[in-house]
Amino acid sequence: MQSSVKRPVLIRIICILGFIWIVFSFPSVFSPAIKKMGDWYPALFGLIVACSFISYIGVWHMKRWGVQLFAITFFVKEAVLFMVNDVSYPGIAFSVFFLTSMLFFYKRMDLNL
């Protein structure tokens, strides 16, 4: 299960921060505040959280699909937040920083699953 590529410290920090974000985001999927936004919003938000979690696992193992999934999830998440008028600029800044850092190490990452 060990990846052949050594994990840089920055990626390690990003993934740990990401996992912490997942831990806090997970309960909010079924929070009353999210539920009030619409019948399908918890499902959509849950999908985003699940995809984010999987993408961090991928990045942790230095897999390219992790970065790709992170990028897709980021754009979908921001599009959804924009539609429900709940855009967080610090959140976008963090995600852009994470994505840029991941892309910096992208070429060193493994192509396979």
Binding site: I22, V29, F30, P42, A43, G46, V49, F53, I54, I57
Partner: peptide
Amino acid sequence: SKSNIILGFTISILIGVVSGFVPAYGASQL
């Protein structure tokens, strides 16, 4: 209500994905 049924299934699937992905990924990398 419909929204609570959707929420129940969403949480179930989410729990399955989050708690099952790490062991499953570990198995796939053996």
